[in-house]
């Protein structure tokens, strides 16, 4: 079953300096129980794509358009207030990058999980509280009762990220969007959280969208990868195939530049230049100014994102 179906999504922001195109024609989908990694650098449009799928961007200044934007079979662009609220948390839940700022500092963790449960299901407070405590125990918080009554400032970042996962899972969503869930955490905590997310995904049969800038996180967690750059999809395919034989020059360069791949102190393969400015993107393929194999037409017209081999898509003139 198709949980998320996005065709030709564009997101722009109207700002004082002009219109910024954050996402420029994205197409992606997610099936039930599947895990997709969206990889990209800051400004690539990866987070904005997810926020748009849940209509979490303030409109205006954001402007969202798409040929299709369906979440759990519901047309998200046509949905209004109450319908959107019913969708969020229930069909699709989201966890965010910085757990320290993700909770309302004025209320206990327990209160914030209970209110999520009660927003979607008519549940007595005591029952909801018991469920919240069970969820906290499931995300491997030992002192679940104590954490239930704790305020956010009393907990560490790793503990809060666990609590946020518990909160996101409280209404058994079909899709979990994880937006850089471990970037703000220490490396050992990151490994624990990633493992926890993987376990929970398998256990609950959820779809997972893991948004990250870190290819290591992708290598750890997902079945399928979508590489974004400059608001566009560059490449899409099964994770092992992408790591073994990347098709797109950007993916190739990205994988080659990862530090620490081999023993010994050495210079790294670098990608010259800087990421495109979303307010003034280059004409044609957004990667062409930095691309080692760019041709004349790359700077004129953007290549279509199309199937190269079965299950693998890419946007590059050399592959068409």
């Amino acid at each position: 079953m198709r949980l998320l179906d996005v065709v030709n999504l564009t997101v722009s922001f109207v700002q004082h300096e002009g219109v910024v195109q954050a996402v420029r024609g994205m197409t992606l989908h997610l099936d039930a129980g599947e895990s997709l990694g969206i990889v990209g650098e800051s400004g690539s449009g990866k987070s904005v794509t997810c926020m748009a799928a849940l209509r979490l961007l303030r409109e205006p200044p954001a402007k969202i358009a798409a040929d299709r934007l369906d979440l759990g079979g519901v047309d998200v662009l046509a949905a209004r207030g109450r319908d959107l609220a019913a969708l969020r948390g229930r069909v699709a839940a989201m966890i965010f990058q910085d757990p320290m700022t993700a909770f309302d500092p004025s209320f206990t963790i327990g209160h914030q999980i209970v209110e999520t449960i009660q927003a979607h299901r008519a549940t007595a407070k005591a029952q909801a509280r018991a469920e919240a405590e069970a969820l906290l125990r499931r995300v491997e918080i030992k002192n679940a009762g104590g954490v239930l009554d704790a305020y956010p400032h009393q907990l560490s970042g790793g503990m809060l990220q666990r609590a946020m996962i518990a909160m996101a899972l409280s209404c058994q969503p079909q899709v979990l969007f994880a937006d850089e869930p471990t970037t703000a955490l220490d490396v050992t905590i990151q490994a624990q959280i990633l493992q926890l997310i993987k376990e929970l995904q398998a256990e609950m049969g959820m779809g997972l969208i893991m948004v990250t800038h870190d290819l290591g996180v992708v290598a750890e967690t997902v079945d399928r990868v979508l590489v974004m750059y400059g608001g566009r999809a560059m490449e899409q395919g099964p994770v092992q195939k992408i790591f073994d034989a990347p098709l797109h020059p950007y993916t190739q360069a990205l994988l080659a530049s990862i530090p620490g791949r081999v023993a010994g102190r050495q210079r790294l393969v670098e990608i010259a230049g800087a990421s495109p400015n979303p307010a003034n993107p280059p004409k044609g393929c957004p990667f062409h100014p930095r691309c080692a194999v760019a041709e004349a037409r790359c700077g004129v017209e953007a290549p279509a994102f199309q199937t190269v081999t079965a299950g693998r898509d890419a946007a590059c003139w050399r592959l068409q």
């Binding site: 965010f96 909770f103 004025s106 999520t116 927003a119 909160m167």
Partner: peptide, 26 residues
Amino acid sequence: NKPFVTVLRAKGLSERRIIFQHVLRN
């Protein structure tokens, strides 16, 4: 503009509850 308001929306609370319980309180 705080991130937690986005989280409150993402978990499906009504706009009225977000404003009157969470935003006003803070």
